[in-house]
Amino acid sequence: MGEIQGTQTPAHSPRISTVGHAALDHCFAIEQFPAQPTKTPAQAYRMVSGGMAANAAIAAARLGARVGLFGAVGDDEAGQFLARRVHSHGVDCQGLQRVPGATSSISAVVIDANGERQIFNCRGDALRRALPLDVSYLQGSDVVMVDPRWMAGAIVALHWARSAGVLSMLDGDLSPQEDLQTLSALADWSVFSESGLAEFAPGVSVEAGLQQALDAGTQVAVVTLGPRGVRWKRRGDDAVHSIASFAVKAVDTNGAGDVFHAGLALALAQGQDDRAAIRFAAAAAALKCQRTGGVVNGPDRAELDQFLALQS
């Protein structure tokens, strides 16, 4: 694919494999969301790569990891853009399939002046038509991260990680309950968005939802709550732990969850304990929220270390 333009990483850096969704995002910046359907002017527009696995891959590469992305896009223009874009930010894309005749996932992302966003996605059929995941590409991984968008690939990756003794993590964003339950039972860490946990365990408290994930088989259950911080629980520990969010002025929350997952995976791969790793990840997400432009403008490792050093 040509020379990688992203940050180069040393060979001893942790290797993270991300398995799942890559999407082409058309991003529109507006002043505020209208109360009812109407024509709304946008102050800015940009076309970027998106999707949970692709975003996490770019974010992890920016933080200094060696990263491989595994998923599928179509052989359309969107797929060509995605493959070039993700690779240009330092991600190994040899596991990103180009499926003949398939359509890539495309989203419209609308972001208001407070940094909140709405996403409208047409997922396409590339992941559904993808060939099975070749686990030989996962050899050498320190962490395997999956999302629920490519269930076949995620299940294979999680089974491989468990048999190989490699740390695994689920990005538990909003998805069908059955899919989240299947993957959570196989992952060492199940890291849910608030809406994802509510879908996984509807009608119960956050604490009960985390416990349900542990009962299903995961080792550590986490939920990110935006400005209300992060809560988590580990198997065998009766306590539900929490950290507060970092006080920042959010201008664009799009991709913050993906940056959190990338930061958490890197911190765990480098041996940080639960609290330190989650704090590291939360700081990375907070820095992302202060910047527009998606995960490509997320923090690098030096920026994140400096930010953490300034916190009390």
Rank of each mutant, 00 (worst) to 15 (best):
R235T: 10
G236A: 13
D237H: 14
D238H: 14
A239G: 03
A239T: 09
A239E: 14
V240A: 12
S242A: 15
I243N: 10
A244C: 11
S245K: 04
A247Y: 09
A247T: 12
V248L: 11
K249P: 09
A250H: 09
A250M: 10
V251F: 00
T253F: 07
T253Q: 08
N254F: 14
G255R: 02
G257S: 06
D258Q: 06
D258T: 11
V259D: 00
V259E: 03
F260P: 03
F260I: 08
H261E: 05
H261C: 11
A262Y: 08
G263N: 08
G263P: 08
L264T: 00
L266W: 00
A267H: 04
A269S: 07
Q270S: 12
Q272I: 06
D273W: 00
D273F: 05
D274Q: 14
A276L: 02
I278C: 01
F280K: 02
A281C: 09
A283V: 04
A284F: 04
A284E: 00
A285H: 03
A285V: 11
A285E: 06
L287Y: 05
K288F: 06
C289N: 11
Q290S: 14
R291C: 03
T292G: 15
G293L: 12
G294P: 13
V295A: 02
V295N: 01
N297V: 07
N297C: 12
G298Q: 05
R301K: 10
R301N: 10
E303Y: 07
D305C: 11
D305N: 13
F307L: 08
A309W: 10
L310C: 13
Q311F: 03
